Simulated scan of single mutants.
Amino acid sequence: MRTMADVARHAGVSVATVSHVLNATRPVRPATRDAVLRAIDELGYIHNTLARSLVTSRTRSVGLAVSAISNPYFTEILQGVEAEALATGYGLLIADPHDDPAHELSVVRMLHERRVDGVIVAPSAEPSALLAYLDRADIPVVFLDRLVDEAEEPAYDQVCADGVAPVRELVGHLASLGHRRIAMVAGLAGLSTTGERVDGYRQGLDAAGLPFDPGLLAHGHSASDGARLATERLLAAPAPPTAVIAANNAMTIGALQALRDAGPRIPEDIALVSFDDFEWADLFSPSLTAVRQPSRDLGRLALRLLLERLDAPDRPARTVRLPCTLVHRTSCGCPPD
C-alpha cells in the first residue's frame, strides 16, 4: 500500500506539503499542488481520512438537509455547496427533510449520528424541535434560504437571498406598465421567504400608490397544485387581477396551468411574473419575466460560513443576504429585446 511518504518522494516535495494539499490546511503553490495530485494519481494513493479523523476529532464531512432536491433552485444550491466542499477537501452527505418538521428532525439526527462536522439546513416552517436538538447536541449549523432568527444579532449563522426588494421591484414594474390589480400567489405560511416576499409585494403596492386588496393575495403553499387552485380562485373573482406574481418556481408552473385552462392570453390579457428564474424560462412563449436568485453563490457561502464556524466556534453569528436580479422578458407585457 502506498504511503504519504511515497507520494512526497514521487512529487519531490516534503511529507508536510503532501499533507497540506490533502487536508487543505495551508496554501500551496499551484504548480506544487499539481505535482502532488499527479503523484497521487500515478501511484494510486488513497488518503486515509478515517485515520485523520481519529487524530483531529473531525471527519471532514458536512451534512446538507434541503427539501425538494429535484427543484432546480435547490439543485443549484446543492451544486454550490458541493463545489465549495470539494475545493476545501470536505465530503458531503445529503438528506431531504420533505419540509416536514418531524422528518426534518430525523434526517438531521441521522446526519449527526454519522459524525458530520456540521450541518447546513433549509428549515421547515416549524423548526422548533430541530432548534432544540441542535442546541442540545451543540451541532455547528448554518441555515440556508430560510431564516429562523430575524434578530439584528442572530443566534445562528444564516444565508439567504433578499426577498423584499426584488418583489417590490416586480410590483413597481407591473404598475409602470399600467396594471392596477396586481395579485400575488404566496408560499407556505411560516417560512421567512414567504413573509419577506409578501412584505415586498405590499411595499411595492404602497410605492406605486395602489391599495392593498386582501382578495388579491392568494396562498399557493409553495407547491404547484396549491398555486393552480389559488390562481383559479383569483381568476374566478368578480374583479380578477390583470397581473399575477408567483412567489416561487413551483407555483409558477401551477399558475401557468390555471391560466392555460381558463383561457386568458399571456401577456395580452394578463401578465405573469415569477420569483425564481428557470433555466428554460426564455424558452416559454411568452418568455418569463422572473427574479433570478444567486443559487450557487448561496450554497458556496453557506459552506464557507460553516467552515468559519468550525474554525472559530465562539465568533458572533451573522445573517448574510445576497441580492437578486430582475430578468426582463416578455410575460410581463414588455416587447422583446
Rank of each mutant, 00 (worst) to 15 (best):
G204A: 04
G226P: 10
S222W: 02
L210S: 13
H179W: 02
L234T: 06
R181F: 10
E196M: 07
A189V: 15
H219Y: 09
E232Q: 00
L229E: 11
Y201M: 10
R202C: 12
A208P: 13
S192K: 03
H221N: 15
P241T: 13
A223D: 13
P240S: 07
L235S: 12
L234H: 06
Q203T: 01
E232W: 03
P214S: 02
T193H: 15
I182Q: 04
G220A: 08
S222M: 05
A189H: 10
G195V: 09
P240W: 12
A239F: 07
A227L: 13
H221T: 09
A236D: 12
H179A: 02
Q203N: 01
G195Y: 08
H179M: 11
L191N: 13
R202M: 14
D225A: 14
A218T: 02
G204Q: 05
A227I: 11
I182M: 00
A186L: 04
P214W: 05
S192T: 10
E232V: 03
L217M: 15
G220Y: 02
E196Q: 08
L235H: 08
L210C: 09
V185Q: 13
G215A: 15
R228H: 05
H221R: 08
T194V: 07
H219P: 00
R181E: 10
A183P: 03
D206C: 12
P211I: 10
A223R: 15
M184T: 02
L188N: 04
L177Y: 01
